[in-house]
Computed example of a mutant assay.
Amino acid sequence: VKLCDLYGMDSMSTGNLIGFAMEACEKGLIKAPKGIELTFGNVIAAEHMIHAIAGQKGKLGKLLSKGVKQAARKIGGTAVKLAVHTKGLESPAWGPRGVSGMGLAYMTTDRGGCHQRGFPVSYELAGEWEGKPLDPLSSEGKAQMVIALQNYSAGRDTLVNCDFGSYGISAETYAELLSAATGKKADPDLIIKTGERIWNLVRCFNLAQGLDAKKDILPHRFVKECLPDGPSKGHRISEKDMDYMRQEYYQSRGWDKNGVPLDTTLNRLGIGYAGPHQ
């Protein structure tokens, strides 16, 4: 992590890339740099690859510097199935196969596989959301939770705060801080409503740039490969699960079946001019 910080690289994406390279090497899809044993868990190899990616050194360093999606496509074959990303952004270590709501959060994030846009895993593992029991493996009833967390996260981000500050600081406290800073009375609902407006605006922008429902998906491994061990052994998020959660999410968001915000939704939020059809 320190090396990534020094280079200005995201440690999660870098870790994902190195893990991908190690597995691809072990499967004979790529060759390791000369003198480097590119096997999973090799700290020396990992450090070497951080330097290589940052400086685009060597054939593999240059390849991985493009990100896991492009690197996998360049390698070709089964490498594409090994790459773990959503919309081109490398997914972090919070695997969703045992917590389907986290999977929905990854599917619907505006910038790809990011846990900072909503983190339902903590509620799913606790087995409760707003005082009601929550089955982490079920694909049903996850949309409202994910949407609420996404809206709150987007709204809170406008305050330019640290994510870790969200733990132990309530929405009411944030509203008081905002009121003190601006001199204008703010309430918690303002943060949530602002987040919802942001989420819909960004969706319209992404749609205009070519995103569609076909990209609101999880990587191959989460869909086709079951968890090999642990308390959720044998579980995965199937195509059917994805389709159910996606449509439940779209409907709850006030979007059509293709993930396009409805005019009624945009008008309610006061952003009708941003409609993707305009």
Rank of each mutant, 00 (worst) to 15 (best):
D187I: 14
F20H: 04
D135W: 02
E26H: 11
G8H: 03
G230N: 03
K81L: 11
L207T: 04
L201N: 10
C114R: 14
V202W: 01
T182L: 11
K257S: 14
L207S: 04
R117M: 10
Y106E: 00
D10K: 05
T265Y: 11
D241K: 04
K224D: 12
A208N: 08
G168I: 01
P188C: 14
K27S: 01
S65M: 05
A148M: 13
S139F: 04
I147S: 01
G35P: 03
C4S: 13
S170P: 00
R253M: 15
C4Y: 08
G168F: 06
Y273P: 00
A143R: 02
T182D: 08
L262P: 03
L227T: 09
K31E: 10
I192K: 11
G112K: 08
L137F: 05
W129T: 02
S138V: 08
A274S: 10
C162E: 11
C114A: 12
R236C: 10
M22R: 01
E248V: 08
N258L: 13
V160A: 05
I198F: 05
A154Q: 08
K87V: 00
R111Q: 14
A208E: 04
G168H: 06
D5G: 06
Q116M: 09
E128Q: 08
G112S: 09
K2G: 11
Y174T: 00
A32R: 01
W129H: 04
Q116K: 12
V202S: 04
G118M: 04
L38E: 01
M9R: 03
M245E: 06
L201F: 10
Y174S: 01
P219F: 12
V80C: 11
K257D: 14
I75W: 06
E225P: 00
A46N: 13
L134N: 05
N267Y: 06
V260N: 03
I191M: 12
Y174E: 01
R268W: 09
N16W: 08
I53Q: 07
E128L: 07
G77C: 09
V121Y: 10
Y152C: 15
C114T: 11
S153I: 01
T158L: 12
G118D: 06
K224E: 15
V223L: 10
L29D: 02
